[in-house]
């Protein structure tokens, strides 16, 4: 029986490979018809900010995140407390083709899943 899967993204882009490798895993799950829900929490919310990593020889992770809707992930969940704590105006977060869903309380949301992949 198929399981509901949540990808919990808690790492900032570039400083740690887990942000990018997390996205790769999310896309792989979606490609296998195991479309996960995605929650950005903690430093993970930094992934959603505008980025220009050319000078550090990296590809823009945010641009790659824009593939999510094409893989059937149209709702991007964001922990509002995490955004607030980092001085990010959560209401201004955007991702082309996706709807940003701000969660005031992530606990009950997380509880609704069978499996959680932490990245």
């Amino acid at each position: 029986m198929a399981k509901s899967i949540l990808a919990l993204c808690r790492h900032a882009p570039y400083g740690n490979a887990l942000a990018r490798e997390g996205l790769e895993a999310i896309l792989a799950c979606a490609a296998m018809d195991q479309v996960p829900s995605v929650l950005f929490s903690g430093d993970g919310v930094y992934q959603l900010l505008e980025q220009d990593p050319v000078a550090i020889n990296e590809k823009s992770l945010r641009r790659n995140l824009q593939a999510l809707p094409m893989f059937g992930i149209e709702h991007i969940h964001v922990c509002r407390k995490s955004a607030d704590a980092r001085g990010i105006a959560a209401d201004t977060l955007q991702l082309a083709g996706a709807e940003i869903v701000l969660l005031a309380d992530t606990g009950p949301f997380i509880r609704g899943f069978d499996q959680v992949l932490s990245f």
Binding site: K3, E24, A28, A31, Q34, V116, L117, S118
Partner: peptide, 20 residues
């Protein structure tokens, strides 16, 4: 093997646990 093996394992296992 590819990441598909992670997706498949998450789908069919009773419990998935990550070790950071």
């Amino acid at each position: 093997a590819g990441l598909g093996q992670l997706a498949e394992a998450a789908a069919v296992s009773d419990r998935l646990i990550s070790f950071g």
